[in-house]
Amino acid sequence: MERIRLCPIDGPKDDEPVAIPAGAYPPLAVYKVDGKFYVTSNICTHGNAHLTDGYQDGATIECPFHGGAFDIPTGAATTYPCQIALKTYAVTIEDGWVTIDAPGEPEG
């Protein structure tokens, strides 16, 4: 499986997520929570905000526009007005990089 390198592991700090501009994937956010790395879509499912501009508090990311929030590991919406879960991506650490799997061939 081809992997996409998003950022070196010293990029995201606890409560300081890193924004990855769109490429093979839509804009992504890379977070560090208790030493573990997580990747979600960086676009709030409610407004059009970049979550990396929001306030990360441990495993929660608060949207900068309207105060909604998501659980980072699962992507679940936890606070209004957010209702729709964030897309999350499985992370592999490889050679000091935070990576995710490259998108597969489109089906059909």
Binding site: A49, D53, G54, Y55, E62, P64, F65
Partner: peptide
Amino acid sequence: RSADMGVAKR
């Protein structure tokens, strides 16, 4: 400057 508001609120 919404990125500042998360801290400002707190």
